[in-house]
């Protein structure tokens, strides 16, 4: 417990090094990770968490940089988590979102962390939620999460962030991709970035039309904000809308959303724990290899194999 509690005590005081170390623990899934999460859990829940999603090239990182500047002007401290994809072939990753935010790196009120998905689907890393908690507990007022943005299905952000901003740019052929990826349904606020382009207004009309077709969740009507991240135009309006959304949530939907988020997380944790438990047990007994051989020789199908494995573990625990 010593390492974990030392890190947690120190990060609760806002120590940047401890924050960084804690994130590495949860990312690597070390033996300290669960202890750290458990210790800081009571200290979380204060920060406002905002997800920023949208395909690559629309200007998410530049927009985040401008948002952080604006938030800092208002005296808020900010944590940023920037997620990039892990290569399925090499297992390596190139984390390049930070480049656009490097001018903020020496500001003590800002903490930026780049994170690879490590093959977690859904546009986030497995450790993203725990990282949000760490930044939250360390005293950051606002936490911004930038999803992968490779145009894949990135809907997992709603499991973490009560406010989701979907960023689009005119002429990037996003419209179709966006609908495919189901991103229209997760946005609380839509941003048309690169609004200095001629086709920006057309994009706004298209998005509005698409939103009217979709199903509405609650009473909130997602606003569409035009920004030009390179100059910062529209960023304060975006912040206003983010504030309004928070206000709206606090009037009732917040607890509902929070419940949903916590439930998702609990489900995820149960899945993970049980899977780990079963897999380790099987491996220990050499039964895992056995099942794999059976699958390969087509003696059994995967579902029945899982059933068999589960029964084996359950009966054994009963016997105990």
């Amino acid at each position: 417990m010593a390492v974990a509690s030392q890190i947690v005590t120190s990060l609760l005081q806002g120590n940047q090094r401890a924050v960084a170390k804690a994130i590495t623990h949860v990312e690597d899934g070390t033996s300290e990770a669960e202890k750290i999460t458990a210790l800081l859990y009571p200290h979380t829940g204060k920060a406002q968490v905002i997800g920023i999603t949208g395909s690559g090239g629309v200007g998410k990182s530049t927009l985040i940089e401008k948002l952080v500047r604006e938030l800092r002007r208002g005296g808020k401290t900010v944590g940023v988590i920037a997620v990039d994809p892990t290569s399925p072939f090499s297992g390596g990753a190139f984390l390049g979102d930070r480049i656009r935010m490097q001018d903020l790196s020496t500001d003590e009120g800002v903490f930026i962390r780049s994170m690879a998905t490590r093959n977690n689907p859904g546009g986030l890393a497995r450790a993203t939620m725990d990282t949000v908690r760490i930044l939250d507990a360390s005293g950051k007022d606002i936490i911004l999460i930038e999803t992968v943005g490779a145009g894949q299905s990135e809907v997992d952000i709603i499991k973490i962030a009560p406010t989701v901003v979907v960023v689009l740019a005119p002429g990037f052929g996003d419209a179709i991709q966006t609908i495919k990826a189901g991103i229209m349904e997760i946005g609380d606020i839509f941003v048309i970035n690169k609004a200095d382009r001629e086709s920006a207004d057309k994009a706004v009309i298209n998005i509005r039309a698409m939103l009217q077709l979709g199903t509405q969740r609650g009473k909130w009507i997602p606003p569409i904000v035009k920004t030009t991240a390179t100059t910062g135009a529209g960023v304060s309006e975006l912040l206003e809308k983010i504030g309004e959304h928070r206000e709206y949530l606090s009037k009732g939907e917040a607890s509902q959303r929070q419940r949903r988020i916590v439930r998702e997380e609990l489900e995820e944790a149960i899945k993970r724990k049980t899977a780990e438990h079963i897999l380790t047990a099987l491996q220990k007994e050499g039964e895992l290899d056995n099942l794999i051989s059976k699958l390969l020789s087509k003696e059994i199908d995967p579902m029945s194999a899982a059933e068999e494995a589960l029964n084996r573990i359950l009966t054994r625990s009963k016997r105990r």
Partner: peptide
Amino acid sequence: YGEYKELIVI
């Protein structure tokens, strides 16, 4: 005019 931030492609 603003300042240019490079687009990194590796």
